[in-house]
């Protein structure tokens, strides 16, 4: 059983209002010096057999990420 991680992030040119809200909230909690937050999604996928990284990449292209607004990376866990 392979465990594959797919990280999906908004493209750099896409405004991330959730990240902006978080970066504005942090100073009020005492976190100084935080200049940027981008919020994305992480998928932990367990795959039995085949080429797990290739399968996860195809799944990311087909469903997990929307190429119009998001980039993704795939890596094997462990």
């Amino acid at each position: 059983m392979a465990r594959v991680i797919v990280d999906v992030m908004p493209k750099p040119e896409i405004l991330d209002p959730q990240g902006q809200a978080i970066v504005r909230a942090l100073p009020g909690l005492g976190f100084e010096g935080v200049t940027s937050v981008r919020q994305g999604k992480r998928f932990e996928i367990e795959i039995d057999g085949g080429d797990p990284a290739a399968i996860a990449r195809q799944a990311a292209e087909a469903l997990l990420a929307n190429p119009a607004i998001e980039d993704f990376t795939v890596h094997l866990d462990g």
Partner: peptide
């Protein structure tokens, strides 16, 4: 329609949330 590719682009979270 955007997700299906019938129309281009995407709809994302409103500015200001």
């Amino acid at each position: 329609l955007c997700e299906s590719g019938l129309l281009p682009g995407a709809l994302i979270r409103n500015a200001g949330l």
